[in-house]
Design a protein around this nucleic acid. Sequence first.
RNA 1: GCGCCCGUAGCUCAACUGGAGAGAGCAUCGGCCUUCUAAGCCGAGGGUUACAGGUUCGAGUCCUGUCGGGCGUGCCA
Length: 553
Amino acid sequence: MKEVLRQAIKTALQQCYDKGTLSSGELPGEIQLEVPKNADHGDFASNLAMTMAKAERKAPREIAEALVAELADNQLFDKIEIAGPGFINFRLAANCWYGVLDQVMSEGDQYGRSQIGRGTKIQVEFVSANPTGPLHIGHGRGAVVGDAVAAVLQAAGFDVQREYYVNDAGNQVKTLGLSILMRLRELLGETIDFPEDGYQAEYVKELAAKLQSEKGDLKGLDDAVAIEICARFGVEKVLDWISEDLKAFRIQFDNWYSEKSLYDRNMVANELAKLKEKGLSFEQDNALWLRTTEYGDDKDRVLIKSDGSYTYFASDVAYHMEKFERGFDRVIDVWGADHHGYIPRMKAMLAGLGHPPEDLEVLLIQMVNLLRDGQPFTMGKRSGNFITLREVIDEVGSDACRFFFLIRRCDSQLDFDLELAKQQSTDNPVYYVQYAHARVCSINRNAADAGIAQPQQGEVDLTRLELEEELALAKQLARFQEMVEGAALHYEPHRVVFYLQDLAAQFHSYYNRQKVLVDDPATTQARLYLINCVRIVLANALRLLGVSTPEQM
RNA sequence: GCGCCCGUAGCUCAACUGGAGAGAGCAUCGGCCUUCUAAGCCGAGGGUUACAGGUUCGAGUCCUGUCGGGCGUGCCA
């Protein structure tokens, strides 16, 4: 719709130049159009005349008048006004909006998709929680945001892969193994000295018991061997839990990428060798460093420690280098905000390899403060005092939980009060939106019971939709695609949530004011057509968020 | 100390690329169910956008500084 309007304005501009009513002869690079907050200002507004004022050496209103003179006869418009300092306000003819309804109806669940992504290969890596314990609430937020970002990108025509990076190498896995082994020995009646930095939570005992029944007592083995067995066993079981939790959250990954496999395939050494070849790393104090200061980092970073072992950063570097070698044009990492200090070194690494900084986008998910009855919960795997994501999903429900995580932009902190979430579950905003969907379905059922056929495209007299609020609904539907594009390009899935709330509010208001199934059959058909377009868009938007679309509530 | 994020109504948050009286929900108060689902609708009150400067036709949005909150600043992962 905007594009059609832009084209009309461009044509009018050219006519102005041809006639000499405007003189600068420059077509502006982009014609800015916005949907005004105030409906009195029309369907679209442009500041064009104001931005052209300098080049034209004329007052904005004068420019606007010249332009409007050329546009006045266009069938597209119902009304064009010049307002304020020089805004041009366009009100489109009702016909334009009826066309939107036909588009929604014929595209159905595809409505809102676009191709602005042009098939760009993009990977979204998210969750990637260490496989040393169950997911907690903070992972849940990252999981939902990552999944929704991937969904809007797909809808906008990007070629998206969802990946989970499994940190199954390194000290934390060894610690898990040791913790399990200690609990196993405890089960066998030995007195143990549980390591201070071990994982103290109950699930470790659970893992130890499970291991005992599946693998035996592990007696007579070297500690190192026993720890390795425990570690592998623990990682495997914990990953099972994690994937079950994610399944309960309706999140599916295209790929689970093992850190250990990087080492097994010698990838870390290989990628580091490439860095050395390019002169990006150097040796000092018996360690190998990456020269990240060259590209904006505060200090250089160690890749190989003086004892010969790799840092976590080393495998991360190798992992990200390999991502681009796999052919992704762009890579998105969803991280907890406490890792923000890593961004400069990662970007520096990529810059050294010749990637522009926007090839890697890091979405920082701010902390979730878990509360119960207003009292903060201290979280920590080692303290053993935490609530798992699974418990929250079971308590609050997947739909409400997902919606709650997406309701605000990810760079601000989120208070999640369990009691509040439960208490408010009946007037949680997610139900408000789902209710709108269910209401349309309910009207459809009533129509069917009354023997009223569903309207068919092309056979409906849409001019029966003459109320301002009916046109307003169609206008809201028309904005859907652009909203999805914005959410994708800015990685802001919360825009979908706000859009849904607006659309649902408009629908509920309409529902309370007007009856759909009225005596006049033509009006009934037109209104059924309209509300089913609303239903389609509600469903498409909810699907992007991974929230269900109930037909009955 | 330095770096990153944040500061908008009593509370929790929106505000597309800098655009026109800064908008929702919750809470408070007042209305609407013999009529398609009241998990809904209609209305009222509530603001110096933390503060001080700057940039310009125009700033919640951009720049500088101050204050406040959070996080980070390992040859940990």
